[in-house]
Design a protein around this nucleic acid. Structure first.
Lengths: 134, 134
DNA sequence: TTATATACGACTAATTCAGTCCGACTTATG
DNA sequence: CATAAGTCGGACTGAATTAGTCGTATATAA
């Protein structure tokens, strides 16, 4: 399975929504959830993580919400995924968590070749910017 | 999560083993399982699927086993994944199973842009050949 | 005839993901 | 200063996927 999580999908939808909104406008989690039929609680958590990662700014209290602060051309998809999932998109466990996590590590013959595949994946997600997702 | 399944990892290890074995030599599931510390039953199933897909030949009975029949330079990784998983590596459900599978489909604004990312992934797995995994 | 293999489906266990719930904190506004 | 509208964040549950196991059938070399 090589699939983006729902959280990432929801995050991208929300970010795209912000990109296409009037510049600097604050948008709430509820608005986005209603607009796109996304579970509110889940989306809220996703936006919080994007906020903590500094990809968007968050404003608490009445009339609070989230807003884009960076140029979408400067936000690679890889960064979005990392902010939401806490890990980069990595195709094997040992590449993600190190040798200890794999109980075939010593006998494994493919980890080195697979770094080539991984490099391509990296490039894909690093090159694609939020601005291209519109 | 963007990760190859254990089945695919095991399949790649086994295929690599065959590629590096003396040409045309028959290798059994047990051999490979022991050699690399892979669960036998699981590996057996993986090899059966690779056999059914025609990527390797299978031989039943005493002194049976599996052998490479194609040039590893003609076997793209995408084909290996498809043979083992039954599906191509696709980053969203709606790209894999069609609109019905997604309950946000109509409101979803990112499916079209994501096809660009998908195209890169496709190219990566389609371009990388088994011969490069050695 | 027997030992050694693959073939294949059903099943269970473990892990991950999606989604929900709840209480706390922040702040604009009447 | 009370209240409503927001974010913040952890704990929890249920669903889905993946990993691994088991049993039985079938093929075949010796």
């Amino acid at each position: 399975m090589v699939r983006l999580s729902k959280k990432v999908e929801y995050g991208l939808i929300a970010l795209r929504h912000m990109v296409t909104s009037p510049s600097g406008e604050i948008v709430t989690a509820k608005e986005v959830a209603d607009r796109y039929g996304i579970p509110y609680d889940l989306l809220a958590k996703v936006l919080q993580r994007l906020g903590k990662a500094g990809l968007i700014s968050s404003h608490q209290g009445v009339r609070g919400g989230y807003a884009l602060v960076k140029d979408p051309r400067d936000i690679p998809v890889s960064q979005i995924i990392y902010a939401i999932e806490g890990t980069a998109p990595v195709i094997t466990q040992c590449l993600a968590e190190g040798p200890e996590s794999c109980d075939v590590f010593n006998a494994c013959t493919i980890k080195s070749p697979l770094t080539k595949v991984q490099a391509n994946i990296d490039r894909t997600f690093h090159t694609m910017m939020l601005s291209e997702i519109v």
